[in-house]
Simulated scan of single mutants.
Amino acid sequence: MTSITDPNMSDRFTSAMGECQNKQLKTYGEIIDGMTELCQSHRQLLTSSLDLCSKKSKDDEMLFETIHTFKKDLDQRNASIKEKRHNISEVMSEIQQKEMQKDEIIQKIEKLKEEQAERKELIKSQNKANKDRLKNLGKARLVFQEHLGLEIRTILGKTQLVKGEKLQFVFRNINPSDLDSAYVVTMGIKADGSYQIVSSDPALECLPVLESRLQETNNLPAFLANIRKEFIARARC
C-alpha cells in the first residue's frame, strides 16, 4: 500500500478527482443534451399536437356545419314531402269524387237510355193504337155517313178544354119532325192514346158512362151507335 506520505499521492488524487469530475460533467452534459433533445422533441410533439388539434377542431366545426346544413336540408325535404303527400291526398280525393260523379253520370245516362227506349216503345205502341183508332174512325165514318147521315168534322179548339185538334161527330135524321137538325158529339185522343169525350149537344147525362165503356172496349162504332140511340131517345122526349 502506498503511503499517504508519498509526495506524488496528491497529484494522483487530484488527477483522479479531475477525471471523475470530467466523467460526471460529461455524463451531466449528455443528460442535459438528452433532456434538451427530449424537450425539443416534446415541444415539437406539443406543437404538432396543437396543430393537429386545431386542424381537428376546424374539421369538426366544418363537419358540424355540414351536419347542420344536411339537417336543415333534410327538414326542408321532409316538409316538402309532407306537403306533396297532402297535395297527393287531395288530388286522390278529388279523383275519387270525380270517379263517383262519373259513375253517377254513367248511371244517369243508362237510366235515360232506358227511359228513352221505353218512351220509344210507348210512342210506337201509341202510334199503332192511334192508327187502329183512325181505322176505326174511318170505318165508323163510312158506316154512319152512308147509312145514318153522319158527318165528321175536324175542328181546332179555342178553349183550354178542347185545346188542339178534335173530331166532331154530327148526327142527323134523329128528330122525325126535323131530319136536318144536328146532334153533335166532340171528342179527341189523349196523350196516352185513349179517347176523350169533350162535350155533346144536346148534353147527355149518360155520356160519362158511355165514355168509360169506350175506354174499356175501344169499340168506337158501338159507342157512336149508343150515342145515336141516346140522341133519338132524347128527341122523342
Rank of each mutant, 00 (worst) to 15 (best):
V162G: 04
D192G: 02
D6M: 02
K229V: 02
G149T: 05
E165T: 15
C20E: 09
E99T: 06
N78S: 11
D132R: 15
L112I: 14
E83Y: 00
F223H: 03
S212Q: 15
K166I: 05
R141F: 14
V162E: 14
E216A: 05
G157F: 03
F70Q: 10
V185F: 05
R228P: 02
T154C: 08
K113Y: 09
A140T: 13
E94M: 04
I227N: 03
I109F: 11
Q97V: 09
D33C: 00
Q145A: 13
K84Q: 12
R236W: 06
Q97T: 11
K108G: 03
R43L: 12
K113C: 02
Q21D: 11
I32P: 00
H68P: 01
N78Q: 14
I189S: 03
C20N: 05
E115N: 08
K229E: 04
E151F: 08
T5Y: 06
L150E: 11
K166R: 09
L179C: 07
L224E: 03
H147S: 07
K131H: 12
L142C: 03
C53Q: 14
R77G: 03
S177Y: 07
I105C: 07
I109K: 07
E216I: 11
A233C: 05
R153N: 15
C53K: 13
F223W: 04
Q96M: 09
Q145Y: 13
R213D: 03
E110I: 09
S93P: 00
Q44L: 13
T5N: 01
P208N: 09
E165W: 08
S199Q: 10
E216R: 06
E99G: 03
K108H: 14
F70K: 10
C206I: 14
L25A: 09
I232N: 10
L112K: 09
C39F: 11
I105E: 09
E37K: 15
A140Q: 04
S125K: 15
L179V: 14
S194R: 13
Q21G: 13
K139N: 10
K98S: 07
A117T: 10
L156P: 00
D132P: 01
L38S: 10
S199R: 07
E110K: 15
S177G: 09
Y183P: 02
D201V: 04
E61I: 01
D103W: 07
R77I: 13
D178Y: 11
E205Q: 09
D6W: 09
L167A: 05
L134F: 15
Y195F: 14
G18L: 14
A191S: 11
E216K: 02
S15Q: 15
S212R: 12
D11A: 12
I232P: 00
S57N: 05
K128W: 13
G138R: 02
K120P: 00
R234E: 12
Q107L: 13
V91A: 11
L220W: 04
I31M: 08
I123N: 14
K108C: 12
A16C: 00
C206P: 01
K72W: 01
K131E: 05
K163Q: 10
V185L: 08
R153Y: 11
V198A: 02
A16R: 06
I152K: 04
D75N: 10
E146A: 04
D201Q: 08
R228W: 05
N130E: 10
L148N: 06
S48I: 07
G29E: 15
L179G: 02
I32L: 13
A117I: 10
L207C: 03
D178P: 00
I155H: 03
I197G: 01
